[in-house]
Amino acid sequence: MSMEPVLQVRGLTMTFGGLRALDNVDLHVEREEIVALVGPNGAGKTTFFNCITGIYPPASGDIFLAPPGGKRRRINGLKMHTVTEHGMARTFQNIHIFPAMTVLENVMVGRHCRTSSGLLGAVLRGAGTLREEEGIVNKSYEILETVGLDASVNELAINLPYGAQRRLEIARAVATDPFLLLLDEPAAGMNPQETKELEGLIRQIRNGKKISILLIEHDMKLVMSISDRLCVMDYGEKIAEGTPAEIRGNPIVIEAYLGEDPDA
């Protein structure tokens, strides 16, 4: 059986008032693959995430999402929440947690699109709703155990330290049962120890939950060790693609990072 890529992007173009933020970008992610999107600041990486998750409508191009064993679907122009429902979840570069909710509740919100009880259910609290609610709580707790936040379930999310907030965002995204997870600079602001734990966590999510991962990251050490494949972007274009070993020696990539040490 031929394996269809879970994400297939063709010719994605995005303009902001005449400025080409993305120019004809092709990219795909295979099943259970970890792909890193790298490039200097302003290369269009986050714009790429925002385009494929429905925050900005792309000017042209095709975005296809195919769940493992499921039917391929074109997701251009779908709203963000529908994209998440189709199985692609994301985190944000600058943290977007729900500050006044507890850690557990943050993750419980992630279960929203996989559950269904409505107003009447909430008020009457029938057996079905109670069962669903218990499922939400237990599943969310399990995910928090995975990311190592089970000790602080009842804390308000705002009171967590920075690194823990990043892990909480990942937990929340995992709670939506995605088959593809987009991580936008998950290691930003983390110390080496935290980054190392993050690497383990990302591997665990891929291996344990069979979730493919596409990440934007500036920490080259992390990227090189974790990724199966890298895509390099500069000025809104994809300039190179390959395994970490291939990318390391690529002169185009080195030029793009001019002034920036790729090992920094």
């Binding site: 929440h81 429902e85 977007h96 909710m101 919100v109 699109c113 995204a173």
Partner: peptide, 15 residues
């Protein structure tokens, strides 16, 4: 509450 706290994030969570 999620919408109140962070609308973008709540939509990214499938709401």
């Amino acid at each position: 509450i999620a919408i109140r706290e962070d609308e973008t994030a709540s939509q990214a969570m499938g709401i």
